[in-house]
Design a protein around this nucleic acid. Structure first.
Length: 387
DNA sequence: TACACGTGGTC
DNA sequence: TGACCAAGTGT
C-alpha cells in the first residue's frame, strides 16, 4: 500500500460523508438498481439521468420484470436518453441474468463482465458500490482526478484505459471502504476536480495533488481531439391521413436503430420535393396529396453527425397502401408508438406544430414549445395528382 | 486501435 | 456558433 493511496483514502472518506450529493440511486443498495444507474450514467449527465431513473425503476423494478418486458417497452422508457443500444444491452443483460443466474447478479467484477453491456468500468462499479468489494473502476472522472493528482503529462497515460489508473484505484479501494471510495473518487471529479474551472480550494486532496503543486491543473488532462462531423441535409416528411401520422422504424443497425422516426429523404439539391421523388423515396402509392414545407430547418447534432432537417407535411385524403420494405405504422395524432422515440422525432413534430405527448421527463422546468412554433398561413409548395 | 453510438449543457 | 464533454461498450 502506497502512502499516496492511504492518505487519499483518509481524505476522501470524511469529505464524501459531508459532501455527497443526494442522488436517488445512492439511496438503494439493490445491485439491480445500481446496475441500472450505471448504465444510464454512461456518457450521460447526472441531471439527465435523474429525470429517467425513478420512472424506469418503477416500470421495471426487478431483474425479472425487465427480463420479461418487451424490448419496445424498454426503449419507450429510454426514449430521449440517447445511446439506445445501452437499453437493448441492459435488457439483454437482464434476460441473461434471469436465465443463467436466476436473477441474482454475481458479486465479482470478472463475473459481472459476462453480462451484456457490462464492460470493465461498470463491472468495477457494481462490484465496489453494490457489493463493497475492492475492485477497481476508472471512468472519465477518475481518470481526470488521477491525471491531476499524479501530474501525468503523457497523453497516452491520461485516459480511462490507462493501466496505471486501474492499479492506483485498486490500491485506493484497498485502503478504506470500497463502496465509499469508489463513489468519492467520481464525486470529486464531478463536483470539484471538474474539466473546466476546478475548485481546488475546496479539494480534500489538494495537499496530495501534483498538478496543483506544479501549477498544471489547467493543462491536465490534455483535451481530446475529435473527428469532424459529417453533415446531412434531409427532408423529414410528416405524412398525415385523417387524424393519423405515419412513422417508420429505423433500420436495425446504425444510428437510432429500431426507433420510430418520421420518414427521412436525402436532399439532393437537384430534385425539388416533387411527387416522383416522394413516391420513390417514401414507397407510397400517392394519388393526391398536399405538401407543405416549413420555413425553418431543424438542426440535430449527434456525436459524429449533423442532420439539417427540413420538416414538411404531406396531407393525404386517405391512407395509402404501404410497401413492405420498411416497418411503418399509422399512429393517432397525439399518441406515441409502442417503442423508442428519439428526441429528433419530437423536435420535428414540434416544429411542424403537431402535438407531442410528453415523452418524459427532462427538467420539469422546460415547457414544450409545441404550439408557439406552429406555422400559420403557409401556402402548399406542391399539389399532386399522380394518377 | 479507432470508431460508432444521443443528447444536452457550457463557454 | 462550434468545440468539448458526461458514471463507456462493443466491434
Amino acid at each position: 500500500m502506497t502512502d499516496f493511496a492511504r492518505l487519499l483514502a483518509q481524505a476522501l472518506v470524511p469529505w464524501f460523508a459531508a459532501n455527497a450529493r443526494d442522488l436517488e440511486w445512492r439511496r438503494s443498495r439493490d445491485p439491480y438498481a445500481i446496475w441500472v444507474s450505471e448504465i444510464m450514467l454512461q456518457q450521460t449527465r447526472v441531471d439527465t439521468v435523474r429525470a429517467y431513473y425513478g420512472d424506469f425503476l418503477r416500470r421495471f423494478p426487478t431483474v425479472g420484470a425487465l427480463a420479461t418486458a418487451d424490448e419496445d417497452q424498454v426503449l419507450a422508457a429510454w426514449s430521449g436518453l440517447g445511446y439506445y443500444r445501452r437499453a437493448r444491452l441492459l435488457h439483454a443483460g437482464a434476460r441473461w441474468v434471469a436465465r443463467e443466474l436466476g436473477g441474482a447478479l454475481p458479486t465479482a467484477a470478472a463475473d459481472l463482465r459476462a453480462i451484456p453491456g457490462v464492460g470493465r468500468y461498470t463491472a468495477g462499479a457494481i462490484a465496489s458500490i453494490a457489493f463493497d468489494r475492492p475492485e477497481p473502476l476508472v471512468d472519465g472522472n477518475i481518470a481526470r482526478v488521477l491525471t491531476r493528482l499524479l501530474a501525468i503529462t503523457d497523453i497516452k497515460r491520461q485516459g480511462a484505459d490507462a493501466p496505471d489508473h486501474w492499479r492506483v484505484v485498486a490500491e485506493i479501494l484497498a485502503a478504506g471502504p470500497p463502496r465509499i471510495l469508489a463513489q468519492a473518487l467520481m464525486e470529486l471529479g464531478a463536483t470539484v476536480c471538474t474539466p473546466l474551472a476546478p475548485r481546488c480550494l475546496l479539494c480534500p486532496a489538494r495537499q496530495h495533488c501534483g498538478a496543483h503543486a506544479r501549477g498544471l491543473v489547467a493543462e491536465l488532462p490534455a483535451p481530446r481531439r475529435r473527428p469532424a462531423s459529417e453533415e446531412h441535409q434531409l427532408w423529414a416528411v410528416a405524412i398525415i391521413a385523417g387524424d393519423h401520422l405515419l412513422l417508420e422504424r429505423r433500420p436495425p443497425g446504425g444510428l437510432l436503430a429500431g426507433l420510430w422516426c418520421l420518414p427521412l429523404v436525402p436532399k439532393t439539391g437537384e430534385n425539388p420535393s416533387g411527387p416522383q421523388l416522394l413516391r420513390d423515396a417514401l414507397d407510397l402509392d400517392l394519388a393526391e396529396f398536399v405538401l407543405t414545407p416549413t420555413k425553418k430547418a431543424v438542426r440535430h447534432v449527434f456525436t459524429h453527425r449533423i442532420w439539417t432537417l427540413s420538416p414538411c407535411r404531406l396531407d393525404l385524403p386517405r391512407r395509402p397502401a404501404l410497401g413492405p420494405a420498411r416497418e411503418r405504422r399509422w399512429i393517432p395524432l397525439g399518441e406515441r408508438p409502442d417503442g423508442g422515440v428519439p428526441r429528433v422525432t419530437e423536435k420535428l413534430l414540434s416544429a411542424l406544430g403537431l402535438a407531442v405527448p410528453a415523452a418524459a421527463r427532462r427538467s420539469a422546468a422546460s415547457a414544450p414549445p409545441a404550439e408557439e412554433r406552429q406555422q400559420q398561413g403557409e401556402q402548399p409548395a406542391a399539389r399532386g395528382s399522380l394518377a
